[in-house]
């Protein structure tokens, strides 16, 4: 197996610090390091499930068809389903008396199913769950600086004023509380150590939202993972843009004289 990149090690270390549960009690679904074939749309998407021992893994298509998935020592291969839109990959287990679950939404291209991703996100998949509200739309990504929101839900009921945390592979940690509707908002930190001035040249980072809960002596913990990208603000200047727009405007005003000259001529007649 390939050694993990340093960013991932920091990411896991951050998670270890974050959780007050046992150090091993972490579940997270992260993409395996990219290989050549992963640029092929028909190739399977490969993920690693941290905390795969004794877990049950399920895969849900956009039209809510569920199937069981086997992992190979934590490695999961998802083959394209031919259905367009977000699919849900999630795993759950009982570990040291804690009901744990991990989820990741995965996009596949294919034929439209006519179903909205909100059906898959809001479907009750595990007792304790983090729901993106909303997911990034097709062609869009979470990126540094974005406000992203999630609903924390237990047995179909949003949890008000409930703590949740966000950790990134670039070693940022944020903590926040849900509002009265059970919705928590994070501003994604701009924490990439190095940015290359070109959108396609930067590897995305990983983020992990985590929450835990206790109910009638039962303990629950859940994680939602996703990628996020470098903010293009590193190589795009709004101020310069506004100046060029101003330049274009002045040039246009100069060329047309904004009608003043003509009015004067008319007035002189």
């Amino acid at each position: 197996m390939k050694p993990q990149p340093t960013g991932s090690q920091i990411f896991l270390a951050t998670l270890l610090c974050l959780t007050t549960l046992e150090a091993s009690a972490i579940m997270a679904i992260r993409p395996a390091p990219a290989k050549e074939h992963q640029h092929d749309r028909r190739a399977p998407k490969i993920f690693n499930l941290t905390g795969h021992e004794n877990s049950q893994i399920k895969f849900l298509t956009p039209d809510l068809q569920s199937s069981d998935i086997k992992s190979d020592n934590g490695q999961i291969a998802l083959h394209p389903t031919g259905k367009d839109n977000y699919h849900a990959l999630y795993a759950s287990r009982e570990h040291n008396g804690v009901q744990e679950s991990a989820i990741r939404y995965v996009y596949f291209n294919g034929k439209p199913t006519g179903r909205s991703p909100s059906e898959i996100t809001f479907l009750n998949k595990t007792d304790f769950e983090i729901i993106p509200d909303p997911l990034a739309r097709e062609h869009w990504h979470y990126k540094a600086g974005d406000e992203i929101a999630f609903v924390i839900r237990f047995k179909n009921t949003p949890l008000a004023l409930h703590p949740a945390s966000l950790a990134t592979s670039n070693a940022s940690v944020l903590e926040s509380l849900t509002d009265t509707q059970g919705r928590v908002v994070f501003v994604l930190p701009d924490d990439f150590a190095k940015t290359i001035p070109h959108a396609r040249a930067n590897e995305p980072g990983e983020l992990l939202i985590h929450a835990k809960h206790a109910d009638h002596g039962n303990r629950y913990a859940t994680w939602l993972s996703s990628d996020y990208q470098v903010s293009p603000e590193h190589w795009q200047s709004t101020e310069l843009g506004a100046m060029v727009v101003g330049g274009g405007f002045l040039f246009g005003a100069f060329v047309t004289g904004l009608g003043f000259k003509r009015r004067r001529k008319k007035g002189e007649k």
Binding site: V244, G248, T256
Partner: peptide
């Protein structure tokens, strides 16, 4: 950006 600014200025009279 230049076209956007130019378009606004021109559209004021054209």
């Amino acid at each position: 950006d230049f076209i956007f600014g130019l378009m606004i200025a021109l559209a004021l009279t054209i």
